Amino acid sequence: MSAPVRLFRTLRRETRGLALLEFALCLPFLIIATLWAFEFANYVLVRQQISQLALQVSDNAARIGTLTSVQTQIDEKQINDLFTGANLQGGSLDLAHNGRIILTSLEVDDGQPHGQYLHWQRCYGALVYPSSYGRQGDGKGNSSVKGMGPSDAKIVAVADAPAMFVEIAYQYQPIISARIAPSALMHEVAAMMVRDNRDTSDPGINSVNGVQPSAC
C-alpha cells in the first residue's frame, strides 16, 4: 500500500479534532443568533417603553390646567413642562434628539356640521415626523375628520370632553447594529379624555410672556 493511501486512511479514521471543527463551523451562526436575540429583546423593551410613555403623556395632558371659577385653562408653559417631563421620564431614550412627541386636542366643532376637528397641536423633539392623523385646524367647518387613530380603532371626542391624542415617533438606537433590528422607526399612539371642564375657546392654549410655544 502506497504512503498516500495509508495517510488518507489514517486521516479518515482520525476523529479527535472533529468536535473542534464542528464548533468552529457553528460559531459564526451562534454569535449571530446571540447578537440578534440581544438586539430583539432591547427593541421590544424600548417599544414597550415608548408605548407606556405615550399613555403617560396623554394622561398628564388630560389632567393639566389652572382651575378658574368656572373652567380649567391651560397655557404654553404647562405644555412645555409636560414635554420636558416626558423627556426626563424617557431617560436614555433622549426623545429631545431621537424622537418626536405630537400632542393634539381632538374636539367637537361647535359650528356646523358639529364634526370632529383638531383644535390645536403641539410638538416636541428633533426628529422630523409629521402627524399620521392630521394637522391643527383639520376638520374645522367640515366633516372631513372622523376621529384620530388607526382606522379600526378611532378615538372620537364628545361635546364636553376633548381627547388628548398623543403620537410618539422614535428613531431606534441599536445596541449592536441597526441591520439586525426589526425596524428603525417606532410609532406609538395613545389617547385620554379630559376629565374636567376645560376651556376649549380659541386659541385653546393661553400664551405666556417669555414662553415659546412648542409649535409643530
Rank of each mutant, 00 (worst) to 15 (best):
M1V: 14
A3V: 14
A3P: 11
R6L: 14
L7S: 14
L7H: 14
F8N: 10
F8C: 12
R9Q: 13
T10A: 15
R13G: 11
E14D: 15
T15E: 13
R16M: 09
L18M: 14
A19E: 11
F23P: 02
C26Y: 07
F29P: 00
L30D: 02
I31A: 07
A33H: 09
T34M: 11
F38C: 11
L45V: 13
L45N: 15
Q48S: 13
Q48G: 14
Q48T: 14
S51W: 02
L55R: 13
L55V: 10
V57E: 00
S58T: 05
S58H: 01
A62K: 03
I64C: 05
T68L: 05
T68S: 15
Q71N: 15
Q71M: 10
T72Y: 11
T72G: 06
Q73F: 03
I74K: 02
E76Y: 06
E76P: 09
K77A: 13
D81A: 09
L82C: 02
L82Q: 02
F83C: 02
T84Y: 08
L88A: 11
G90M: 01
G90E: 01
G91H: 08
G91L: 07
H97M: 09
R100E: 05
I101P: 01
I102W: 01
I102F: 00
L103C: 03
T104M: 08
T104L: 04
V108D: 04
D109F: 12
D109P: 05
P113H: 03
G115A: 10
Q116R: 07
Q116F: 05
Y117H: 12
Y117T: 05
L118M: 15
W120C: 00
W120P: 00
W120A: 00
R122H: 09
C123M: 04
Y124K: 01
G125N: 02
L127C: 06
V128A: 14
P130L: 07
S132F: 12
R135D: 12
G141N: 03
G141R: 06
G141V: 10
V145T: 10
K146F: 09
G149L: 10
P150T: 08
S151G: 08
A153Y: 08
I155H: 12
V156M: 13
V158W: 05
A159S: 15
A159W: 13
D160K: 13
D160R: 11
F165P: 00
F165S: 00
F165G: 00
V166C: 01
A169I: 08
Q173K: 13
I175C: 08
R179N: 12
I180G: 03
I180M: 14
I180Q: 01
S183H: 12
S183R: 15
M186E: 04
H187L: 12
V194F: 06
D196S: 13
N197F: 11
S201T: 15
D202V: 14
G204N: 03
I205V: 15
I205N: 00
N209C: 03
G210R: 11
G210H: 09
V211S: 04
P213T: 05
S214E: 07
